[in-house]
Amino acid sequence: MSVLVFTLILLVGAFLAGLLGSLTGLGGGVIVIPLLTLVLGVDIHYAIGASIVSVIATSSGSAAAYVKEGITNIRIGMFLEIATTISAVFGAIITIYINTGYIAIAFGLILLFSALMMMRKKVDRSDNDTSGKLAVFFKLNGSYPTLEGIKYYAVHNVAGGFLMMFVAGVISGLLGIGSGALKVIAMDNIMRIPFKVSTTTSNFMMGVTAAASAVVYFHRGQIDPGIALPVSIGVLIGATVGSKILLKTNTEKLKVVFALVVAFLALQMIYNGLSGRL
């Protein structure tokens, strides 16, 4: 395949990945990596490097919009970034020592898990009751603007959330994805932060987390400009278009279709990982 054909195919594929990733909230990486490895025959280490670059682009782009709205809790973000950056660097370091087949299997499993999480009905368990000593010490409790006025919330189980963020960071560094599904578990279910705050804050943290592992990939030669070029531009444009459409459409049906596509890709990754083809 020539450079030109490869770039064009990848540009279109990355655009679709960014579009679907932003419409469904899964992120572009989950499509980009199977596209590169299964369809274009690219080694998974290059795929991971290109994917993490697209994660930085999309998360920084949308964080810019969210921060201005005043929903993001920057203290929660900064505090949890300690956990995610350390573990992302750790995850990025160990990928090279792990058999690529196992990486593909792990990727498939995370993909299945993300698809399940996407389909699950979310329950908002946030409240403004008493929260723990840690939440008060780190000044994590906050407020955000709603249509009915300022809403206050309390943060719970800070230690549990912090630990879960370690897991999210390792997965992010290991597989080159934002691992938003795991971050949301940590914030929604464990720390019981309101949705709006947890999604925007998770997005806010993603850029720094991804940057920490991207630096390791960069030094190792996993970031190839020939792949990063179409992937970053395609995913960013796709995600931008997606966020514009998102405001006007109901994505429930789309989510079901997308969950099936993602599940199929996940099984493909696992199969190829098991049979030693990736």
Binding site: S2, V3, F6, T7, G41, V42, I44, Q222, G226
Partner: peptide, 14 residues
Amino acid sequence: YSEVIDYRVFDPHK
């Protein structure tokens, strides 16, 4: 543009 791509095997020094 006309060169042939080769990303099949990861080469850190490529």
